[in-house]
Design a protein around this nucleic acid. Structure first.
Length: 219
DNA sequence: ACCCAGGGTCATA
DNA sequence: TATGACCATGGG
């Protein structure tokens, strides 16, 4: 069982996911911040609030009173923290000239810059790089680590960067792998959501290993 | 009532 | 560098 076979099994089980849900690169990036440790259904309401307030753009987010911004973000949880993070991000985004400028940066420079924004960590930065900038970086999250660990492909002690490198060197970093990385991460998340809660019978599935609240296999 | 969700930062040792 | 506390809403 290698990383390609895991992908094939997930795709077979769940089909194409059409990620990221979002109508523009900027909306994708907003979602990446708001979904930190938060269910996507909660994020949708917060984004809807921004859209209904005609404020789903970086200029408006900066100009809006932080307390009002936080109220719009309330449904996504951690709303005070996320209001500050969103403001940090938008200040940086505008200072660098917006998407049309940023998209010309090479991936490493862009990644370092994203990580320099307070409130944007490795996973959030890689969400943005993959789903908003279409760069061939692999997003690692808690599900990914747990799945690989329980499949016996890694020990579980690896750092974020080590796991990311595992995927990126296995498949290669060519731009042609963007669609594969997009689909793969989305499938892992979908599997964790669907297989575990809505399908208890998935215990029989070899990929059931990633389910939350399930005891790790003996040994 | 309890558990968890598509993390990240900061204080402490 | 490595844990722990903290942030907070909403669905199962």
């Amino acid at each position: 069982m290698d990383l390609r076979q895991v992908f094939d099994a997930l795709l077979e089980a769940y089909g194409h996911q059409h990620w990221w849900p979002g109508e523009s690169p900027f909306e994708v990036m907003v979602g990446a911040i708001l979904t930190q440790n938060t269910a996507w259904t909660n994020v949708e309401q917060a984004i809807a609030n921004l859209r209904d307030s005609d404020c789903l753009d970086p200029e408006c987010i900066i100009e809006t009173d932080p307390a009002k911004l936080a109220e719009w973000l309330r449904p996504s949880g951690y709303f005070n923290v996320k209001a500050e993070r969103l403001r940090n991000f938008c200040r940086w985004y505008l200072a660098e000239g917006g998407y049309e400028r940023l998209k010309r940066w090479d991936t490493e420079r862009l990644r370092r810059a994203l990580l320099s924004v307070k409130g944007v960590g490795p996973e959030t930065a890689d969400d943005m790089l993959l789903y908003a900038f279409e760069r061939p970086v692999f997003v690692i999250d808690a599900y990914t680590r747990r799945l690989l660990t329980r499949l016996g492909l890694v020990s579980g002690e690896e750092s974020y960067e080590t796991l990311r490198a595992r995927f990126e060197t296995f498949f290669g970093r060519e731009p042609g792998n963007v669609d594969l990385f997009n689909e793969y991460h989305a499938l892992i998340v979908e599997h964790a959501k669907l297989a575990c809660r809505k399908r208890p019978e998935c215990r029989e599935c070899p990929l059931a290993a990633a389910c939350p609240s399930r005891e790790p296999p003996p040994e």
